[in-house]
C-alpha cells in the first residue's frame, strides 16, 4: 500500500488542533472527504502556515499512517488561494454554506468528482461577484441533483396530479412539492410558484455560468432562495450553522 498520497483537493474546513497544528477537512475527486492534520501549521515559520485556509485548492501531498488511520499533510501546491472571499461577509458565508453542505452531507453521496467540480465553479462565480441570491439558488439546486433529492417540479408528491399553474409547497419529508388540495395535510413548507419552478427546470440543464445569467425578478429570486435554504436545512436536520446566522 502506498502511504505517500498525491491528489487534487480543496480545504473545506481548517480548525486549530493543539498548540501548533491545524486539523483540516478536505474534498478530493479521488479520495472524497478526508481529514488530515497539518503539523506545525500554526507556527509563523512553518512551510504550511498561511496555506491551510478554507477554500484553498491545489495539489495535495499527504502521508497516510495505516496504523493510526490518519493523514498528515506534507505539502500543498496551491492553485488558487481565494483571498477575495475575505473581503465580503456575504461572499464568505455563501462559500461557507456550500462547504458546510458538502461536510454535512458526507460528500454529497459519493460522486466526489462532480461535487469537487461544482464547488470550484461556485467559488469562481462568487469571486466574480455574481448576484448572491442566484448563486445560492443554483448551488442548492445543483447540490440537490447530486444528492438525488431534487424534487419533481411538475407533479404533486402526495397525490401525483400535475401541479399546473398552482403554487407548490416544498417538503423534505415527502421529497417533493405538494399541490394546494393536499396542503391541509402537509407540514409547513416553502411555497414555490410556477415562475420559480419554470426557472429551476430551465436552468437545471444549463452550465452554471449561463444559468446565472438567466434573469429572475428580485423578489422572486429572494423567495426562491429562502425556500431552497429552508429545504436544504431540513434535509440536513437543521444543522446548517451558516443558515442560522441570517446573513445569507
Amino acid at each position: 500500500m502506498n502511504r505517500n498520497i498525491q491528489c487534487d483537493a480543496m480545504i473545506l474546513k481548517s480548525m486549530r488542533s493543539g498548540e501548533l497544528h491545524r486539523r483540516l477537512t478536505l474534498i478530493s475527486p479521488q479520495l472524497g472527504l478526508f481529514d488530515a492534520t497539518a503539523y506545525g501549521a500554526r507556527k509563523g515559520s512553518a512551510k504550511l502556515a498561511g496555506l491551510v485556509e478554507p477554500f484553498v485548492h491545489g495539489r495535495v501531498y499527504a502521508y497516510y499512517n495505516p496504523v493510526k488511520q490518519q493523514y498528515s499533510l506534507q505539502d500543498i501546491k496551491v492553485e488558487q488561494f481565494r483571498e477575495s472571499l475575505r473581503d465580503d461577509l456575504v461572499d464568505l458565508y455563501s462559500a461557507s454554506f456550500f462547504a458546510e453542505l458538502i461536510l454535512k452531507s458526507f460528500g454529497s453521496g459519493g460522486d466526489h468528482e462532480a461535487v469537487y467540480a461544482l464547488m470550484l465553479e461556485l467559488l469562481d462565480e462568487i469571486e466574480q461577484k455574481r448576484d448572491h441570491h442566484h448563486l445560492i439558488i443554483q448551488g442548492c439546486w445543483r447540490f440537490l441533483h447530486l444528492f438525488g433529492l431534487a424534487p419533481d417540479l411538475l407533479t404533486c408528491a402526495a397525490c401525483g396530479r400535475p401541479l399546473g399553474q398552482a403554487i407548490g409547497s416544498l417538503h423534505h419529508g415527502e421529497h417533493g412539492l405538494w399541490c394546494e388540495s393536499c396542503l391541509p395535510f402537509a407540514p409547513a413548507g416553502a411555497a414555490l410558484d410556477v415562475a420559480s419552478r419554470r426557472y429551476l427546470s430551465y436552468t437545471a440543464e444549463l452550465p452554471l455560468q449561463k444559468a446565472l445569467r438567466v434573469s429572475l425578478a428580485a423578489e422572486a429570486a429572494r423567495m426562491l432562495k429562502n425556500a431552497l435554504l429552508h429545504y436544504m436545512d431540513s434535509i440536513t436536520d437543521g444543522r446548517l450553522k451558516t443558515i442560522k446566522s441570517g446573513i445569507l
Binding site: K13, L92, S96, F97, E100, I247
Partner: peptide, 10 residues
C-alpha cells in the same frame, strides 16, 4: 472572530 462554519457571526 467571524467563523461561519463554527456558527460564530458578528
Amino acid at each position: 472572530a467571524i467563523s461561519p462554519l463554527d456558527g460564530i457571526g458578528p
